[in-house]
Simulated assay, not measured.
Amino acid sequence: MTRKDYPLILQMKDVVKILGFSKSTVYSLIQEPDFPILQINNRKVVYRDDFFVWLDSKRRVIS
Rank of each mutant, 00 (worst) to 15 (best):
Lys17Ala: 04
Lys44Arg: 14
Ile62Trp: 06
Arg60Asn: 08
Phe21Ile: 00
Lys13Arg: 06
Val26Ser: 04
Val26Lys: 01
Asp34Glu: 14
Gly20Arg: 08
Leu29Gly: 13
Ile37Arg: 15
Met1Ala: 10
Met12Cys: 09
Tyr6Ala: 14
Leu19Ala: 03
Val53Met: 12
Glu32Leu: 14
Arg60Thr: 15
Ser28Lys: 15
Trp54Gly: 06
Ile9Asp: 00
Gln31Gly: 15
Trp54Ser: 06
Val15Gly: 01
Val16Lys: 10
Pro36Ala: 01
Ile30Pro: 08
Val46Ala: 06
Ile37Ala: 09
Arg60His: 08
Ser57Trp: 09
Tyr27Ser: 12
Phe35Thr: 05
Lys17Met: 01
Val45Tyr: 10
Phe52Met: 11
Gln11Thr: 09
Phe35Ile: 12
Gln31Met: 11
Ser63His: 02
Tyr6His: 04
Trp54Arg: 03
Gln11Gly: 08
Lys17His: 02
Ser22Leu: 12
Gln31Val: 05
Arg48Asp: 10
Val16Arg: 11
Lys4Phe: 05
Val16Tyr: 02
Ser24Trp: 00
Arg59Ser: 13
Trp54Met: 06
Lys4Glu: 13
Tyr27Phe: 15
Lys23Phe: 11
Lys23Asn: 13
Asp50Glu: 09
Val61Phe: 07
Lys17Thr: 11
Pro7Lys: 03
Leu10Cys: 05
Lys13Val: 09
Phe51Glu: 11
Val45Cys: 11
Thr2Leu: 10
Gln11Phe: 12
Ile37Val: 13
Lys13Gly: 09
Asp34Ser: 14
Phe51Gly: 08
Lys13Met: 03
Tyr47Ile: 13
Ser57Ala: 14
Leu38Asn: 13
Asn42Cys: 08
Asn42Glu: 13
Ile18Phe: 09
Ser57Arg: 12
Gly20Pro: 13
Lys58Gly: 10
Met1Asp: 04
